[in-house]
Amino acid sequence: MSAVVSAAGCLAANEWICGEYLRSRGQELTDATVQHVWITAVSVLIGVAVAFPLALLVRARPGLAAPVLGLTTVLYAIPSLAMFSLLLPFFGLSAALVVTGLVLYSLTILVRNILAGLASVPEEAREAARGMGYGAGRLLWEVELPLALPAVMAGVRMATVSTVALTTVGALVDYGGLGTLVTTGLKSFFKAQVLTASVLCVVLAVGADLLLLGLQRLLTPWTRIRRGRIREAG
């Protein structure tokens, strides 16, 4: 493509990469991205808020482990299009439908990782805290949760990346963020729109993953100190 093909020309020529598209539809792209981000963020936050009590419940009553984990696995096996459709009678064409579907999917990953994190807490740490007079609540907040954080955050990262990708399916009910641009782009064979929205989606997923990785490092400074000492010793 030579410079003769002017900026406006690429829209008319329906090219895959088009700067003029970014300029002329900037607002539309921003709106879709903002919608994508808030749907993902709200879904993951609600997912974590639901998964924590579920994981604690399963830990307190191991008999519930099989039904809870089984149910979340079953939910995960249901295709997203079917999941959103089954929620239609309850929520209508709304953002709540998409968020509910995404929360249900995130539970599988989150509950498993929170349980794995809590199980990885060394028994000595628990004993020591109990010996110091920690009650169950304080033990959970000040000892178990911080030690479980790496596994929990690994789960949150996986759930977030999947949720960013799955949000696109919300286009079915017009709440798909960038996914809505992808499907409307298909109707008019608008190549620049489909490619730009798809690439932005992947960028969002990778960006969210890195952001959460940074947050994890900030929240668990001791893991780095420990690793540093091992390196010095070795």
Partner: peptide
């Protein structure tokens, strides 16, 4: 498999279709 999770299936289907 990590990369596979970040790529939206719907976007790939639509991209291949056009």
């Amino acid at each position: 498999s990590n990369a596979g999770r970040a790529v939206p299936t719907l976007a790939v289907l639509v991209l291949l279709t056009i």
